[in-house]
Design a binder for these strands. Sequence first.
DNA 1: TTAAAGATATATTTAAAATACATCTTTAAA
DNA 2: TTTAAAGATGTATTTTAAATATATCTTTAA
Lengths: 140, 140
Amino acid sequence: MYTDYSLRVLIYLGTKEDGKLTTIQEISDAYHISKNHLMKVTFELGKAGFIETVRGRGGGIRLADRPENINVGMVVRRMEEDFHLVECFSSETNTCPISPICGLRGVLGRALHAYLAVLDEYNLQDLLFNKDALRDLLRT
Amino acid sequence: MYTDYSLRVLIYLGTKEDGKLTTIQEISDAYHISKNHLMKVTFELGKAGFIETVRGRGGGIRLADRPENINVGMVVRRMEEDFHLVECFSSETNTCPISPICGLRGVLGRALHAYLAVLDEYNLQDLLFNKDALRDLLRT
DNA sequence: TTAAAGATATATTTAAAATACATCTTTAAA
DNA sequence: TTTAAAGATGTATTTTAAATATATCTTTAA
């Protein structure tokens, strides 16, 4: 749900010097997305432990760890709560009568596993290989 | 978009005797989903060549090929037009300033590829291994 | 010729995402 | 010690897309 914006926030923070704080306003300006919405994203990123948040004047957010240690698969798993491809993935709302014996969930589950396995091969550092160019595009 | 219902329609048709026609009404009743919506799904399934449609009295729909020859990956690819995980996947509406040099699209693209590769390993016949039980659940 | 079936366009409803608004808490600086 | 800048948090509105509904048309077997 917050996956897109979460990754963008982490990329933004990754272009900053280590330990430097960044305000949500600044990221909101850079990507032209709602500051209020970003506050929720950063709140979740903080709860999940990917970033540190510092309240009060002079505060802001920063990566909680080095980019090499922030795994893309983990971020997606934490920020995208339901990978609900077909109705039967969420048992509360499922109404499909064949779900008890249907092979679909297994097949789609295996596919999802493969999807996340690829993301597990990458960390934030891999997305920052051209850090200088990213900085340029984000500070114009 | 139509993926869930498309697969359910194909499973339903797969439980029928070869060549037998099934009305959309019948499938709508079995799954308790909107007949009008299913008509759009079957229309697309027909256009994509997965089913044959027969208009007029006594008409209906049937699989266009044997279940072994209907690949799950192909169905998902055809029925789910946009696998739009982050904004930059659809260039028309993309506003992300870093998309020209961002590594995210590549990584997510590779993950999507792995996802579909798993689905490519399965065909409709694989989803019908317990055809009799499926029939029971669908005709009650 | 009529009724049953799919074809097709438009409109409405529903649900979720995105955004906006408002108020609170924290904390550094004046 | 007050104030302003920052994040925290809850609620409401807007936007978008999916799902459903309505209506009319075409096809075709009985």
